[in-house]
Amino acid sequence: MPNISLVIMAAGIGSRYGGLKQIDPVGPHGELIIHYSVYDALRAGFDRIIFVIRRDIEDAFRERIGRVVEAQAAVTYVFQELNDLPGCAHAPAGRVKPWGTGHALWCCREAVYAPFAAINADDFYGATSFQAIAGHLHQANDQAGLLDFGMVGYPLRNTLSEHGHVARGVCEVAPDGSLISVQEHTRIQAFADGIKTWHEDSGWTPLAPDIRVSMNFWGFTPALFPELEQRLADFLRQDEASLLRSELYLPTVVGELIQAGRAHVQVLPTHEQWFGVTYQADRAAVQAAIRTFIAQGLYPNRLWA
């Protein structure tokens, strides 16, 4: 089987949690969500882990997260830096936050040389989702002018929070399972009478609970990187005021490639329950789910001895 890698985008993790020391464990022996993702990936056949982080959190990240993973797999660290940009481009004065997931992945261009999956650092995706994307990557076959990508698609009802609204990429999927488009919905919430999305012009509108959504779990080949570079260069041609805050998101890049006829993206359906800590109160639900999975024998009580 060909080698496959897992890219974990973690450059924003310190900012979201107020510092790495504030990341709360979800497993019984201090395991974090990211540790369960690595565990599932290794079982699915991934043989290399690539962490995308910021330089200022490197020491804390290695101590809090990386040290455990380094004992289990080959690990590479890539730094997402504001001025790591195509050509002669540079960040405008006053720009502080990272450039987004599209840029985070482009920063891996010299570290990735095999088909790879890309995930968020703080989302729990489920073991069978890693198996599905691994199966796709093992058979990925770019053709002349058409890139062979994949995306794990979750039922919307499996990705919600009990404690407020969430943002999700709602997918339009062709009958053959290929991705047509991903539309970002920034306010989706479950109500007593169903799941709804908020639109400024029409208010709350129903959404089908089984509609597929993207949770930023992608499968790519290294042929993505030249395409990413071109679109990142185009993105950076915005006026300087816009560049102070705007970000380049992976779904935007993928959508452009689909519309241009440059990529075929196979949606890989999963029935896994996604978990994440969108709200502070979500953590208890994640911890309870992990305890249930351990009781069911899906994970050992201690991930790694």
Rank of each mutant, 00 (worst) to 15 (best):
A11V: 10
R16S: 09
G18S: 14
L20D: 02
I23N: 00
I23F: 01
D24G: 15
P25D: 09
G27H: 00
G27A: 10
P28Q: 05
I33W: 00
Y36P: 02
Y39R: 01
D40C: 06
D40R: 00
A41N: 01
A44G: 11
A44V: 07
F61C: 01
R62H: 15
E70F: 06
A73C: 14
V75M: 04
Y77H: 00
V78T: 09
L82D: 00
L82Y: 02
N83W: 08
L85F: 08
G87L: 04
G87A: 06
C88P: 02
P92Q: 03
G94R: 06
V96I: 06
P98S: 01
G102C: 14
A104I: 00
W106V: 03
C107W: 06
C107E: 00
R109F: 11
V112L: 13
I119K: 02
A121R: 05
G126P: 11
A127F: 08
T128Q: 05
H136N: 07
L137N: 04
A140K: 12
N141I: 12
T159M: 12
S161K: 12
E162C: 12
H163D: 12
G169E: 10
G169R: 06
E172L: 07
V173A: 15
V173H: 10
P175S: 15
P175C: 12
I180W: 08
I180V: 06
I180K: 11
F191R: 13
K196N: 10
T197K: 00
P209C: 02
N216H: 13
G219C: 12
A223C: 12
F225P: 03
F225H: 05
R231W: 05
A233F: 11
D239H: 09
A241R: 14
S242R: 14
L243Y: 06
L257V: 08
G261S: 12
R262H: 07
V265M: 00
V267S: 00
L268M: 13
H271F: 03
W274M: 12
G276V: 03
T278Y: 00
D282R: 10
V286W: 01
Q287M: 11
Q287L: 05
A288I: 10
I294T: 08
A295K: 11
Y299C: 01
N301P: 15
N301K: 14
N301T: 15
A305P: 15
